[in-house]
Amino acid sequence: MRVALFVTCVNDLLYPGTGQATVRLLERLGVSVDFPAAQSCCGQPQFNTGYRHETEPLVRRMAAAFEGYDHVVTPSGSCAAMVRDNYPRIGARAQGEGRGGELARAGASLAARTYELTEFLVDVLGVTDVGAYFPHPVTYHPSCHGLRMLGLGDRPRRLLEAVEGLELRELPGADECCGFGGTFAVKNPDVSAAMGRDKTGNALSTGAGLLCGADNSCLMHLDGILRRTAAPMRTVHLAEVLASTREHPYAVPEAATGADTAAAAHIATESAGKIR
C-alpha cells in the first residue's frame, strides 16, 4: 500500500505540527507514508473565489505529484472535499469548453484515491482506537466540509471517544458554520466574525479548554478570535490529539485552561464586546 501525505499549503506553512502529527500517527499504525515534494495547494482558494482557470494548473500539479500512490491522505476536510467534489467538476467544465478530457481524467483519478484523515483511519485501516492518550476535556467542531460535503458522520467522534483519558464535551450548535469560508473571512469580515464569535461562545460554554477540529483553516479563524479575546481556550487539530501518547503527550498551551460554564458564558459576552 503506497500512501502519500497531502499536507495542504496551510498546514505546510502555518501548521507543520499537524502534518508531523499525521505522520507520527500513521507510522505508529504501521503505515509507511511518503511526502511528495511536488505538491503545493489544491486550488481551493482560487476556485471558491471564482478563478476556475487559475485553478487548472494546480489540479494538474496535484494529479502529477500523487501519481502512482494508492491512497492520498490529508488532514483537511475542505481540501479533501475540493479534490473529491470540485476536481471532477473542473475537468467536466474544461471538457465542455472543448479542451479535451485530460484534466477530467487527471482529476477523477486523484479524487478516487483521496481520503480525509478520519476516513482513511476508519474506512481504510479499519481502526477507531488508535492507541492515543489525551487526558483533557475537549469539544469538537465538525466543520462544514467534513459534515456536509464529505459526510464524515460519526467517524471523528468514534476516534475521539476511543482516546484514553479524553472527555468529549457536546458542542451546542455543532453543525453551524464557524464563519471562516476562505476569502469570505475577508470579503465579509463582519458577518464572518459574528459567526466566529457565536461558535467560540458555544465552545467556551462547554468549559473545555480545547476546541478540536479536523480543518486548520477553520481553526485558524477560531483560534484568532479566542486569542484576540484572551479566552481560556485554544484550538487543536484532531491529528494532534490522535498522535498524542503517554510517552509523547501533546503539550497543551498554557492559556487553554477552560472555564466553568457560568464564567464561560460571561466571557463569551465580554469578548463579543471587545471586538470592533
Partner: peptide
C-alpha cells in the same frame, strides 16, 4: 479585514 477581529496565526 482579518486582523480587525482576529489574531493572525503565529508563523
Amino acid at each position: 479585514a482579518w486582523t480587525g477581529s482576529r489574531e493572525l496565526p503565529e508563523l
